[in-house]
Design a protein around this nucleic acid. Sequence first.
DNA 1: TGTTAATGTATGAGCGTTCAACCAAAGGAG
DNA 2: CTCCTTTGGTTGAACGCTCATACATTAACA
Lengths: 168, 168
Amino acid sequence: MTDDGWLTAEQLDAWLTFRAASTLLDAALDRQLQRDAGLPHAYYLILAMLSDVPGRTLRMSDLALMTQSSQSRLSHAVARLERNGWVRRVPCPDDRRSTLARLTDAGFDVLAAAAPGHVATVRAHVFDRLTAEQVAQLREIGAAILGGLDAPQACPDRSPAQAARLAE
Amino acid sequence: MTDDGWLTAEQLDAWLTFRAASTLLDAALDRQLQRDAGLPHAYYLILAMLSDVPGRTLRMSDLALMTQSSQSRLSHAVARLERNGWVRRVPCPDDRRSTLARLTDAGFDVLAAAAPGHVATVRAHVFDRLTAEQVAQLREIGAAILGGLDAPQACPDRSPAQAARLAE
DNA sequence: TGTTAATGTATGAGCGTTCAACCAAAGGAG
DNA sequence: CTCCTTTGGTTGAACGCTCATACATTAACA
């Protein structure tokens, strides 16, 4: 690959295609869940992660990592879910700084009602359109990208020289 | 693949990995552009699409399609970009319902200044971590998913029976 | 030609996310 | 033991997006 700081034609094509698919897929998932269950996809994920763990309880920080949320985002989200009665916040006995989020029975029911429609949408938009090989490829690609995102590695500093050249 | 309405272990693994990567990648791109150029990724795309077209001018509707924006979202976005002086709205001579969005010189300069840092971030997070084969695979996967999203095809209606079973 | 439908866009309210600031509890170093 | 730093979490303002609505222009058609 030519390493002049830009993308090759193949890379640009792949990038724009992937971005478009990812953006529209996100929108489709949000629309389906909002319409059928009254909650956005990010909130569904919070309930799903809680439901999948013994005691249906997680520390806020761990839940934030599992749902790819900032702590602030999660805090706001859980506040809303708590107002709805889907989640309850309880103090953590081990560490008095921490807060535990516990899925309520009502929250579990909402999740259980929403799950089939959500899964059907994911299958229709993703897995029904991919071969088993492509599913494996998608996993590998996701893992590769994820590897560069988890560690707060340095974003490469821009080159002002290039900017100046282009601005001409 | 078992077709009982749920995901296989491989599918679930691929799905969660892909979702995590996509979510964190989006956040990383938005952060970088917001920090270094003062605009979100979606706004960068609008400027980029305009800059790549003869006359640097597009109908709002076409621009919305190219940027995977709703018309409402684009209208708000262009309103903001126009306040900043990056874009100007001009009436369309052919169809008096339409509005043309034209990239201004100032807007082009902003884009040119932002582009190198953005491209560097995309390369660092995506293309530097993928093989050429994976890039081709990503394009194919994106195209396959996109094929089910462009046409406003029916979202599969949920199965209330499954929901009831699960809610038990 | 007059009526109705479809198209292209804009607007405002409501909501979710980000960012910066803040506070409290725990850990470490002197 | 005190100070300082780190960690865990919350809050409010600013902003972008969604949704519903509205309006003007064009197309279809009887």
